[in-house]
């Protein structure tokens, strides 16, 4: 009886582990602890290394022009950048999209923060240990440590909660 109970616990634990790995924190568990060494072209085609922004708190936002919730959160990202400019916050948009539609959309909406083009090959999200859908927002502190990864639409209250740890000065 006790042996059966033990086997049951092991089976439940294994099933739980399997489901957790698939649904609970599937991507965050694969995320690097620090900002990966990644260089991507900007909208002018100039290579930009993420290390360029080292020392500043960063909100890195994976987005695309074909992604409606991504476009919907851009005004919030612009507002957060303006609100926390004195604390050094920089927002970096990494587009899982091609250069031409990104340029057209950026011109139309007047996005001021840096936009990098990752196209659709999945390499840039992979460097952050993320996959699946977008938008995804990655919060990075001044030491380059990733403090949070938030898949899905970012809302103002949640954004402020996630920004708080990265805006602190050491």
């Amino acid at each position: 009886m006790r042996a059966l109970f033990g086997i049951g616990i092991v089976v439940i634990a294994a099933a739980g582990g399997f489901l957790a790995s698939r649904y609970w924190l599937p991507e965050v568990s694969k995320a690097p602890s620090h900002l990966p060494a990644l260089t991507l072209p900007d909208v002018e085609g100039k290579p930009r290394a993420l290390a360029e922004w080292k020392g500043r708190p960063l909100l890195i936002n994976f987005w695309a022009t074909w992604c409606e919730p991504c476009r919907r959160e851009i005004p919030l990202l612009r507002s957060l950048r303006a609100t926390h400019a004195a604390e050094g916050l920089e927002v970096i948009g990494i587009a899982i999209d091609f250069r031409d539609p990104v340029i057209a959309y950026a011109r139309q909406t007047g996005i001021e923060y840096p936009l990098l083009i990752a196209e659709e090959n999945g390499l840039a999200p992979k460097a952050f240990g993320i996959g699946g859908g977008i938008p995804v927002s990655v919060f990075v502190n001044r030491e380059g440590r990733i403090t949070a990864i938030k898949p899905g639409t970012l809302h103002a209250k949640r954004a402020e909660e996630l920004l708080r740890p990265i805006l602190q000065t050491p």
Binding site: Y23, V28, I149
Partner: peptide
Amino acid sequence: AALVAVVPLSDSVSAKDEFPPASE
């Protein structure tokens, strides 16, 4: 899949932040 996707989490990333892969 629908049931599992709403299991609460204590971590900073909550279950509502998680989405199953496209294949699911």
